[in-house]
C-alpha cells in the first residue's frame, strides 16, 4: 500500500480550476518531486494535502487514513508535515523554541504543570531541549539555537522550517521550494541534507522545486503539473525528455 494515495483530486476557486483530476501514489520512503510552471497548482496541492483547503473532488489517504475534511492540525497529527513557499517561521521566537513548539504533541505535560513547574516540567523540557537540539544539529543550526528566528540568514530560515516540520514526527514531509533563494553551494548541501533526513528518520518526502538540478539529483519519481492537470509522471530522466513536458515547461 502506498503511503500517500491521491485520487481524482480537484479544487476550483470561483471559475478557476486550480487543480483538476490529479492522481498521485507515493510509496513509503520515496523521494518524490512535483514540478510545473508558475501557477500550475503545486502549492495548491500542498494546501489540499494539509487541510488548508478542502478539495472539491477526490480522496486523499495517508497511510490508509482518509484525511479529507480534517483540520490542518489533525492532519499534522496524522503524520503530514510541511514547509511553506513564503517562509512562515515564528519570527519572534528563538530557533530552539520554533522546534520545541513543533514538539508540542510529542512531549506533553498538563497546564497545571506549566503553572507551577512541578518536577515533570523540568524533565519534559529537558527531553524537549535534547530532541530539538538533535534535530537542529542535522541542519547545522545548533550553533544559533538561541537566535531569534527572524535574525537567521535566509537559507538557514528555510532549513529551520524543515527542522520544525521534522519535529512533528511526520510520515510524510512536504517541502515547498526548499532551495528557493539559495546559492548553488547551499543547494548542493541541502540536497545532501534532504537525503540524509529521509534515511535517518525513515520518512517519505514530496517536494516542489524549480531547480532541475536538485530535482533530477534526488527525486526518484516526479509528477509534472500544468494548468492544474497531470502532464506526465515517471522517473526523472523519462519525464524530462517527454516532448510535451519540454514545450510546456522546460523549453520556456
Amino acid at each position: 500500500m502506498a503511503l500517500l494515495e491521491v485520487k481524482n483530486l480537484g479544487i476550483s476557486f470561483g471559475g478557476l480550476r486550480a487543480v483538476d483530476d490529479v492522481n498521485l501514489n507515493i510509496e513509503k520512503g520515496q523521494l518524490y518531486g512535483l514540478i510545473g510552471p508558475n501557477g500550475a497548482g503545486k502549492t495548491t496541492i500542498f494546501n489540499l494535502l494539509t487541510g488548508v483547503y478542502r478539495p472539491t473532488t477526490g480522496t486523499i489517504k495517508v497511510d490508509g487514513v482518509d484525511i479529507v475534511g480534517k483540520s490542518p492540525s489533525e492532519i499534522c497529527q496524522n503524520g503530514v508535515a510541511r514547509t511553506f513557499q513564503n517562509i512562515r517561521l515564528f519570527k519572534k521566537m528563538t530557533v530552539l523554541d520554533n522546534v520545541k513548539a513543533a514538539l508540542h504533541n510529542q512531549v506533553k505535560y498538563s497546564l497545571f504543570t506549566s503553572f507551577f513547574r512541578t518536577s515533570n516540567y523540568y524533565q519534559s523540557e529537558k527531553q524537549m531541549n535534547e530532541k530539538a537540539m538533535e534535530i537542529l544539529k542535522v541542519f547545522d543550526l545548533d550553533g544559533q539555537a538561541n537566535y531569534l528566528a527572524s535574525n537567521l540568514p535566509y537559507g538557514k530560515q528555510r532549513k529551520l522550517e524543515i527542522a520544525r516540520g521534522l519535529a512533528t514526527n511526520p510520515k510524510l514531509l512536504l517541502l515547498d521550494e526548499p532551495a528557493a533563494g539559495m546559492n548553488p553551494n547551499e543547494t548542493a548541501e541541502l540536497m545532501e541534507t534532504i537525503r540524509l533526513v529521509r534515511d535517518k528518520y525513515n520518512i517519505t518526502i514530496l517536494l516542489i522545486e524549480h531547480d532541475m538540478k536538485l530535482v533530477t539529483g534526488i527525486c526518484e519519481k516526479i509528477l509534472v503539473l500544468n494548468f492544474g492537470t497531470e502532464l506526465a509522471t515517471g522517473a526523472p530522466e523519462d519525464v524530462l525528455n517527454n516532448p510535451e513536458v519540454i514545450t510546456a515547461y522546460l523549453g520556456e
Partner: peptide
Amino acid sequence: AIRDNYVAAESIG
C-alpha cells in the same frame, strides 16, 4: 506561535 503565524502553528499540529 499562534501570534507569530497561525497558519504555521496549525501546520505543526
